[in-house]
Design a protein around this nucleic acid. Structure first.
Length: 451
RNA sequence: GUGGCUGUAGUUCAGUUGGUUAGAAUACUGGCUUGUGAUGCCGGGGGUCGCGGGUUCGAGUCCCGUCAGCCACCCCA
């Protein structure tokens, strides 16, 4: 048997048709990010493990692709006691936010005091592949570093809403919540901080498994009935309107001091968002939790009924950059799951713009006439058209077939007859019509393709 | 990491209660057509039926193991 040609599990090849769609989508993303005043950066795919570890929570650490040491370092490790600590020092980046934090900490003096950046690049996770879940996938990240204003949250959500609107991606919401509000709710229900994270995980599933499912889960996780009833009680019979919902929760958790200030932060975000496209898409979801441990304030997640997971997520992470420098710097950002959005757009039969293949194929009758074909191709290229010269020579049958597979609309025919008479024939692949022009006039005919 | 389903030409799939040399469509390729594709007709190459073991006179088919893929969970984009 030959060597396996499938890419490694969770990795993908992108053929020309795939790339066309991806370029179309990435192009829109980039245009909108620029429109919102973000600058582009790039960072290495490989980071030190010391940079990566401890930022994403235990689950995240498990999913890091680590790079095995080589040479002496590896032999020494194997000779002594091989373990997590000495077998690997670097790994593939898990997201684009932690590298940004590192970069900002290192180059702060070279960067504007408030740094707005975007980055579109692949990240890697050693996850089990599934529909819309890959081990290598692109993230489109926007972040604003150095500002503590709620305006930042709104700008970021507004940018990604505009991207999805431009892509005509429908049927989505941006769920919003606040890490502190979750803590307030848990405290208010008399649940200890030790049980906080496990409680959050259960709560996050509310829309999937329902209230009864969450209750069961919480019992399994060791909460008592009183705590559960209080916690569930907070969420029952909430009004539909975002603001009223926040206000109701502030009232219900009034036994905790911070309740009001946290709630007001959410209200401010909702109010500011009304001045942007984000106003239409924000949906306050008091049970949105998000696993990444670096979030400290508002958190966001794009959801759609057509996909079980998240289509993008983000939030405020005011302490992350401080892990790379002495001072803490506030920051907030969002990562768009373009892979999943492309997947859904494909499933919905979306339009990805025009096919951008060559406009013209110049056929090659024989090796003797190859030079003549190249000369003609050069002339046509000077018009600004995309021109393919048949890579070889021989049967026209083959060459026309080739034009079809490449979806080329016009074929320039240049055989001994044409050369002798000083003419050029142009065949239209759709209508099968073939018309002969003088060498002076054929370019005018092809110019029509430019329009 | 846990559970379920599925593995047959490059691709999509047939293949009967286990029975001779494993089929179709499509793609590729040659001819009908030595200057013309997509439609037609005739031909050609391409498979150790995922891999290993077992049951049997006989296994693509049944059993066990293993690997891979898909789906669900966990988590996430």
């Amino acid at each position: 048997m030959a060597i396996a040609t499938k890419p490694a599990s969770g990795f993908r090849d992108f053929l020309p048709e795939d790339m066309r769609r991806r370029d179309y989508v990435f192009g829109i993303v980039e245009k909108v990010f620029k429109k919102y005043g973000f600058d582009k950066i790039d960072t290495p795919s490989v980071e030190r493990l010391s940079t990566l570890l401890g930022k994403y929570g235990d689950e995240g650490d498990q999913l890091l692709f680590r790079i095995l040491n080589r040479g002496d370092k590896l032999s020494k490790a194997l000779d002594n006691e091989p373990g997590e600590g000495n077998l690997s020092e670097t790994g593939l980046r898990y997201d684009l936010t932690v590298p940004l934090a590192r970069v900002f900490a290192k180059y702060r003096s070279d960067l504007p005091p408030i740094f707005k950046r975007y980055q579109i690049a692949p990240v890697w996770r050693a996850d089990r592949p599934q529909r819309g879940r890959y081990r290598e996938f692109y993230q489109c990240d926007v972040d604003i570093v150095g500002s503590d204003s709620r305006l930042v949250e709104v700008e970021v959500v507004s940018a990604l809403t505009e991207i999805l609107n431009t892509l005509k991606f429908e049927n989505f919401r941006v769920h919003v919540n606040h890490r502190e509000l979750l803590k307030v709710m848990i405290e208010s229900a008399g649940i200890s901080s030790a049980q906080e994270s496990t409680t959050l995980v259960a709560l996050d599933k509310l829309d999937k498994i329902g209230i009864d499912g969450v209750k069961k889960e919480l019992i399994n996780r060791g909460l008592n009935d009183q705590q559960i009833d209080k916690l569930i009680g907070l969420s029952e019979n909430l009004p539909d309107d975002n603001r009223e919902k926040v206000n109701t929760l502030i009232e219900r958790t009034s036994n905790i001091d911070r309740s009001k200030t946290v709630g007001e932060e959410l209200l401010l975000i909702l109010d500011l968002a009304e001045n942007t496209v984000a106003g239409e898409t924000l949906f306050f979801d008091p049970f949105l939790a998000r696993g990444l441990s670096y979030y400290t304030g508002a958190i966001f997640e794009i959801r759609s009924d057509d996909f079980p997971g998240s289509l993008g997520g983000g939030g405020r992470y005011d302490e992350l950059i401080g892990m790379f420098m002495k001072e803490s710097v506030p920051a907030c950002g969002f990562s768009l799951g373009l892979e999943r959005i492309i997947l859904l757009l494909e499933e919905r039969g979306a339009d990805f713009g025009e096919d951008a293949g060559p406009d013209v194929l110049v056929s090659v009758f024989s090796d003797e006439l190859a030079g003549e074909s190249l000369k003609v191709a050069t002339e046509i290229r000077e018009l600004g058209l995309k021109v393919d010269v048949y890579p070889g020579s021989g049967k026209f049958k083959k060459q026309f077939k080739y034009a079809n597979t490449r979806k080329i609309k016009k074929v320039v025919v240049l055989a001994p007859d044409e050369v002798e008479n000083g003419t050029i024939s142009i065949k239209d692949m759709a209508t099968t019509d073939q018309v002969t022009f003088s060498r002076a006039a054929y370019l005018d005919e092809l110019k029509k393709l430019l329009a």
